[in-house]
Design a binder for these strands. Structure first.
Length: 438
RNA sequence: GGCCCCGUCGUCUAGAGGCCCAGGACACAGCCCUUUCAAGGCUGCGACACGGGUUCGAAUCCCGUCGGGGUCACCA
């Protein structure tokens, strides 16, 4: 049975690219009749894991990517937080040590850095001298007598190649000699990401590792541990990045000012901001940001439209079909059809999906969807009187095409939207605009 | 810089040697429909990074170049 996972670290927000990674994992698991798990990669002990995790769980729920095992639902292969598994990781480290695949290293960070710098200066590849390597108790005792403390490093091969198959990239190979003796356990005994990752994937019986391309070059060291620990290798699929509008750079939540120079991105942002302002929402870049999924929920997008758009970022079914229901996505998705090149985020196209999807929403549902927005904006009293509901329904009914097309593709549309959502008078006109985007 | 990955219209993509002087979608322009604005319909603009091969034939295979990205932590 296929088991996939999405393993975010608790950063306090859910990146749109992360949603896509989660989506692909979810689709694959659902299609195979397998399980989709959520695991929290918090080996780097943080104080407010709970607080930093909440937005991520919330975002996944909003887009409907439910997990079968993980936080809140738990499961038979927990815990699903890496911070709770250090003993288990140390056990794996011991195994690697026992098998001679890892060693105690007594170099200080300064000494390691000095070697690295020297290699840099001489323009050669850095290879650790293993000068402070200790593999036997006497060696350890000697270094410890000097007052040194040890980390555990992998003793990586220095010849040969690491080869593996990737569902998206085909056969990939790396020279072992390029790999470093990576640290897997810190001086304080806590373990690092790669080790934890490998152990968890094994403990959780993950069969397919579907993750972003940035992990492609991390794969050899993980495979080294997987093989060393006697685990079986999962299948891999390294997804291309979601790139910035109009470029190949990885989309980043910190570059909003730069993205705002892109007209389409600016339209997307301004439209959202005008709605947020009208409702008195906080719009600092940390929370209100089109690179973060929350943005779309706050502004009133349809989760299905966002998901449908994201599905097409790096994946296509054929040369015609672009709209899919959840079930169709599940039935039709294949890793083999995922593109290799990075896909840049196109705000206009996202908007087109939202617009089209909105037109299909029945009036009563639209009323229900936009009511909370009108209320937050102070245009409708909190328990909405029936008279207002009726009137709202009639407004939306009467203006259906218009309101659904207020999100249409014309350049002026967003501007008009903004104007109307910002307008204070609860006239039919102004109140029917917002629904169109809610 | 080393290594790895990638390279079809502005953007997302279809294309697995002849069906392609390259198809669809978004955006853009124009026309039709329409009391208006939308929606819808139609038309247009617009790409195989470059150079060599292989082949009767290449976007598709091979080599090189160029370009872009990723990665090289006691981060994840």
């Amino acid at each position: 049975m296929a088991r996939t996972r999405f393993a975010p670290s608790p950063t306090g927000y859910l990146h749109i690219g992360g949603v896509r990674t989660a989506l692909f994992n979810w689709l694959f698991a659902r299609q195979q009749g397998g399980k989709f798990l959520l695991r929290i990669d918090d080996t780097d002990a943080q104080r407010n894991v709970e607080e930093a995790l909440a937005p991520i769980l919330h975002g996944l729920k909003w887009v409907g990517l439910t997990w079968d095992e993980g936080p809140e639902v738990d499961g038979p292969h927990g815990p699903y937080y890496q911070s709770q598994k250090n003993a288990r990781y140390q056990e794996a480290v011991r195994t690697l040590l026992d098998r001679g695949l890892a060693y105690w290293d007594y170099a200080t960070p300064e000494e390691t850095k000095a070697e690295r710098d020297a290699a840099d200066r001489e323009k050669r590849q850095f290879v650790y001298s293993r000068r402070w390597m200790a593999k036997t108790p006497p060696e350890r005792a000697r270094f410890e007598a000097e007052g040194r403390q040890a980390v555990v490093r992998l003793e990586m091969p220095r010849t040969g190649k690491c080869e593996f198959r990737d569902h998206i990239r085909g056969d990939v190979s790396f020279d072992w000699a390029r790999e470093q003796d990576h640290v897997i356990q810190r001086v304080d005994g806590t373990c690092l990401y790669h080790l934890a990752n490998v152990v968890d994937d094994f403990d959780m019986k993950i069969t397919h590792v579907i993750r972003a391309e940035e992990h492609l070059s991390n794969t050899p060291r993980q495979i080294f541990m997987i093989d060393g620990l006697g685990y079986s290798r999962p299948e891999y699929a390294h997804l291309p990045f979601v790139a910035e509008p109009g470029s190949q750079n990885k989309l980043s939540k910190r570059k909003i000012p730069q993205y705002l120079k892109n007209p389409a991105f600016k339209r997307l942002y301004d439209h959202g901001k005008s709605i947020a302002d009208r409702m008195g929402l906080q719009t600092s870049a940390d929370t209100f940001n089109p690179v973060i999924v929350d943005f779309y929920e706050q502004v009133g997008y349809l989760a299905d439209a966002v998901v449908n758009y994201l599905l097409l970022l790096g994946w296509a079914y054929d040369d015609r079909r672009e709209e899919f229901t959840r079930q169709e996505m599940i039935d039709l998705f294949t890793l083999e059809r995922v593109n290799k090149a990075p896909a840049s985020f196109d705000p206009d196209k996202l908007w087109a999906f939202q617009d089209r999807a909105m037109r299909k929403v029945p009036v009563p549902e639209k009323v229900a969807k936009c009511l909370p927005f009108l209320q937050r904006a102070g245009l409708v009293p909190e328990p909405a009187p029936d008279a207002i509901r009726d009137r709202l329904a009639r407004i939306i009914e009467a203006a259906r095409d218009r309101s659904s097309s207020s999100g249409c593709a014309s350049r002026r549309r967003p501007a008009r939207c903004c104007r109307s959502s910002a307008s204070a008078s609860p006239t039919p006109r102004s109140s029917m605009r917002r629904p169109s985007t809610s």
